[in-house]
Design a protein around this nucleic acid. Sequence first.
DNA 1: TTGAAAGCGCTAACAT
DNA 2: ATGTTAGCGCTTTCAA
Lengths: 339, 339
Amino acid sequence: MTIKDIAAYCDVSVSTVSRVLNDHPDVSPAVRDLVHEAIRKLHYVPNNSARSLVSSRSTAIGVVSRGVDNPFLSSLIRVLSREIHDRGYTMVLHQIATQADEVQAAAMLEREKKLLGVIFLGGRFNYTEDELRQLTVPFVCCTYTNTFGDLREDAYSSVSIRDEDEAEKAVRYLVDHGHRRIAVVLDDPTDSSIGQLRFQGYRRALTRCGLDYDPALTVLTGNYALSAVYDGICALLDSGADFTALLAISDALAIAAIKALTDRGRRVPEDCSVIAIDGLEMSLYTVPTLTTLCQPAEELARESVEMLVSLIEGTGSHRHKLMETVLRPGASVARLREA
Amino acid sequence: MTIKDIAAYCDVSVSTVSRVLNDHPDVSPAVRDLVHEAIRKLHYVPNNSARSLVSSRSTAIGVVSRGVDNPFLSSLIRVLSREIHDRGYTMVLHQIATQADEVQAAAMLEREKKLLGVIFLGGRFNYTEDELRQLTVPFVCCTYTNTFGDLREDAYSSVSIRDEDEAEKAVRYLVDHGHRRIAVVLDDPTDSSIGQLRFQGYRRALTRCGLDYDPALTVLTGNYALSAVYDGICALLDSGADFTALLAISDALAIAAIKALTDRGRRVPEDCSVIAIDGLEMSLYTVPTLTTLCQPAEELARESVEMLVSLIEGTGSHRHKLMETVLRPGASVARLREA
DNA sequence: TTGAAAGCGCTAACAT
DNA sequence: ATGTTAGCGCTTTCAA
């Protein structure tokens, strides 16, 4: 069943059928109806490969997710998948390791799958105009923005929270509860990624609260492996470091950190308060329940798709949307009791 | 950059390049290397639309996952994504709600995206020949098999664990630790899904161990929502039920259950042992560490792709592979101390 | 408003 | 072992 069959059936030319198919204006209403009728009756479905070949565009939207084991990103992918599908596009998901280069992966994917656009999840914040030239389709950074790069604002879109501000907010929450010796656990403060930004927020909060930064209270894990976090916190405790609270830059890290603290006999929150940023569903079921700043995952994802689609369809221009987190108080933060 | 450019660059014909591209035998090693070199140097990427058009088949493999919030399935999807891509196919991921009909969803998807085959994740165990007629491409059931349906064994493939046996094994582990009053938490014992099978294993274990089944110790949540599990366990405790151990049919449920027990003042494992089946990474970081039977996620996914690809490429026939779990002892199960 | 025809990039006969 | 060539189903000039 091809366009030819429809043409023959209607006794018109294939170009006429093609015009109807693509909603071109120059078709008489009578013929248009006739063709539509035939399409319905014969259960004709256009061959997407042929369409893509000739128009050299597919229906594919790429989602490149860095950090395969990040449960927060998994929850975003669920929403992205649904939204992309609902709008008539196809999601091409590509998950890469945290060390991998998402721009290069996207560029490959763009050519392989003829992507119409790309949504990046959990990427670096330091893209340069130069490296982005590899990508010729519009893209949206979801969960981050190009803080450290030299991209022009009108060259890309982003949907994210104010990571630095939110981290500061988290630390202030601890300070408000009387804490002065606050540790932090993150992957790497120089990776131009979410870790760096949230760490900057941590530093800024300390400064603004009149607290000294003590490098001995910074736990660097080098990656996002939970085992590394666990080991890192154990090492921190072994070092005899003096702290009463901990900021984990993500919920997943917090869960591993709480485990380490508990295993080493530190009660949470009595001996050590813990706060994080993300808002996983799982974090509601940690013991104790994690206090965390929840990112609006659903909206983050939905907005990303909306932006990209409007870019693809030419009905919108590049925008940068910042969203708010919502504090979800758990039981992992307690007021510091003076010794 | 097309196949022509490569041909011209190498001074060979397009068919030779095509042969190299498709790993056809009739190419001299010298030319083969030459072409590969050119492809690399010129960053050539074959046009999938053109390939699909001429061979009238796409490169798409559908993955239909039921249970969008199941973290175990998320981990499978990661592996599937990688494996499918590595073999030169494209993963079309479709996540549907637990209540939705995966067969119908797959049938839709098959036509829309010209799927070559489908991998089902977390589906029902009771497909009928009749309903599967909607699907005209080969499919593999990953994590389950058609226990309750009437599918002929040679009409589909599956990769799974022996859910009933494994559940029995889990219960026996508790019994071996002295437990006699063992509760179970699951979604629904009649859903022809994984819950039902594991519940049957629970029942069978009780029988074989000479223990009575007490309906009062069965917590049914109706769905996989963690909040429902939490509430269910609380209700169980409120009912004054007498039990010293609990089987959760999945790690995620166990995490919520442990939380409920802990919140209600029951120490795990001192007052109540907990065991589960799945083996999430997260479960290593619960307090206490969850004792669980780990499914071989990586192999489960890899084998599914391998089976489907061999089916698609006509080099294999339908098979049913059963895998073993591995007990990962945590600290959530303790020997019962006689009162 | 409609039709004829030239490709889009590739694969697979078929020919050499 | 390699080249020539006819399409795959569709869109899009260009001509009528």
